[in-house]
Structures are given as C-alpha cells and as structure tokens.
Design a protein around this nucleic acid. Structure first.
Lengths: 166, 166
DNA sequence: CTAGGAGCTGGAGTGCACTCCAGCGCAAGG
DNA sequence: CCTTGCGCTGGAGTGCACTCCAGCTCCTAG
C-alpha cells in the first residue's frame, strides 16, 4: 500500500487531514456509514480535495468521535442531527443543546444501572448452572428441581415452582 | 377493572400463574412481544388455560427476566433461542450453554467500559459548552475558536484546527 | 496507452426485532 | 340475546440504521 502521491494536496491538507479510509479505520465506522452520516447531516465538517474526494480535518475526526459516542449510547440519528444542526456556539441554541446532551447523560447513567443488573442476572444464572452441574455430576439422578425450575424449560417442571419473591 | 371471574381456573392456576397482560405489565415487554418471543422459541414455559389463553407460571416469569437480561445486553434473538433450546440441565449441553453465558458476560463488561468512555465524552462536551457560553456571554465577540473548533460545525472554522492528540 | 484501484453519487436493498391487523372465539354483564 | 372486552392466530407491515451496488471519474503504475 504505497502512500498516494500527495503532490496535489495543499500544504494544509497534506499533513493534517485524513482520507475516508483512514477515518474509517480510525473510528471503526464503515466507509459507507461515514458517507451516509454526512448525507444525513451528522457530519458537517467534511471537506473535499481538488478531485472531489473527502478530506477530514482533525476537528472533523474529533467531532465524529462525539457523534459516535452519542450513537453508541443510544441517541437516535434524528436527535444527533438535531444536535448537529444547532450549529456553532450560538447562544440562542444553548438551552436546547444542553438539554439534549444532559438528557443523554441521564440515559447513559440509567443504562449503566440496567446493565449492571442484567450482568448480575446472567452471572447468577452461570453460578446456578455450575452448582447444578456440580451436584448433577455428584449424584446423577434426582436433580434439585427447585434450583432448575426457575431457570429452565424442562417440561417436567411446569407449574411446580411456588410463588416468586418480587 | 373487576377481577375476571376465576371460577374456571384450577386451584394451582388460580393463585400462582399470570395472564399475558399481567406479565406484560410486570416485565414491560409488550403483549405482542411476549407472543412473538414464544413463537420464536424464546419462551418455552408458557401454558394455556382451558379456553386457550396463555398462563405464565412463576418459573416462566423468572425465565422471561433472564431472556430480557440477555436481549437487553445485546444478545441476538437467534442466540437466545439457541440457549433456550439447549434445554434443561443436560450435561451434554453444559459446555455450549456456559460458553454462551460467559461470552455474554464478557460482552457486557466490554459494553460497560465503552459506555463509561462515551459518557465521559458527552460530559466533556457539556463542560466545554458551559465554558464557551460563560466566556461568550462575558465578551460577546471574538469567541475562543480553539475551544469551539474541535466540537462544532461553524463554517468559519474549517480546517483551522492543528493536530489532534491521538 | 492501458489497466487497476480508490472514491464518488443516487438509489435500491437488507437485517433485525418487533408491531399491527383482520377475523375469530369465549365469557360475563345488562 | 346482544354487546363488550380480552385474548387467539397467521401473516403482513414498520422503523431504524445502515449496506450494497452500478456506473462513473480520477490518478498512478507498468
């Protein structure tokens, strides 16, 4: 992969800006996604070289990382667009901008709690299976139904379990 | 909402099992989703009352919560199905079952790290905007471009920013 | 001069996970 | 007896976020 002859690029462009492939590798967003985000108005900072190819100045790269953070944490594309189109630092849009970002923070925190809880559920299940197998291996027959029941689909167990805690 | 005459239900059914609506409220899964999960083989524990309506024994409820944890943490429906169809506690399936669950744990932990990082990005952005506005309000003109640039789409700023840290 | 490779555009296609709907049955209340 | 309400089924439809593609241009290497 020889470096594409940079002869034509301007001095500024040469060292600081990245091609779409590099950005793709850098951010792990696919090339198609980068183009699509741009079309959809999530990436306004993209420039073009003389022959019409995209050039991403470093500011764009950082901006993309923000967009990525918003997307990965569950902000819908429409909201990211809204945020982006609120533009530079204009005072007028400050409240809405802040609202969007703070809302997102709240959601992330909520999500983290949920994730912790869900992790606990999965880990508890793993523990139960370990115990089950430990016992099952020790005494092949007569499995502890009450341990199995809440977890599994064994038809023998249907409707056997007593009331659940909450 | 008068309690539906329970006259017909069996003694076992009466107190312990739930109707689809109750499960829906309990789990926050929509009624349609519950039915769909069942069709798709994610919920094998569901029974029927005499007139063909679904009855969820408590074991099913707990099971649903596990499925929910797996789904919410990003396990694809296909994998949940695979996990579910591995069946009761049979030794034969133990390795695959554990593999699925442990893989999922790993993914959750990864996701939590990512989430923390993304939260940091969003919070940093909020902080930068606060600072920007604080200054902007103090001295209306001549905004601090170097602070704005990495964040925003102001056309005046294109290609201005120097090299990025990483 | 030619061939290969990267990128471009506009638009169509895909995958996933639901979500909605028509048309039906049952059961209770008035 | 009729209506109202809940639930059932099978199948079609939806929303979101990409992902893929044909047909093009430009540039560089051989």
């Amino acid at each position: 992969m020889p470096p594409p002859s940079l002869a034509v690029m301007t001095a500024v462009t040469r060292e600081t800006s990245l091609g779409i492939r590099q950005v793709s590798e850098e951010t792990r967003l696919s090339i198609d996604t980068l183009r699509w985000y741009e079309r959809e108005g999530l990436l306004p900072l993209v420039e073009r070289s003389a022959d019409g190819r995209r050039r991403y100045p470093p500011g764009a790269l950082r901006f993309i990382r923000l967009v990525q953070a918003l997307r990965r944490t569950g902000m819908p594309v429409a909201d990211v667009r809204r945020f982006v189109t609120l533009g530079g630092g204009e005072l007028a849009h400050h409240p809405e901008r802040m609202a969007l970002l703070e809302q997102q923070c709240a959601q992330i925190e909520q999500r983290m709690v949920e994730l912790r809880d869900d992790l606990a559920v999965v880990q508890a299940t793993i523990a139960q299976f370990r115990e089950l197998i430990a016992r099952g291996v020790d005494c092949e027959d007569e499995l502890p139904d009450d341990l199995l029941a809440p977890i599994f689909a064994d038809p023998r167990l249907r409707g056997v379990v007593p009331g659940l805690p909450a």
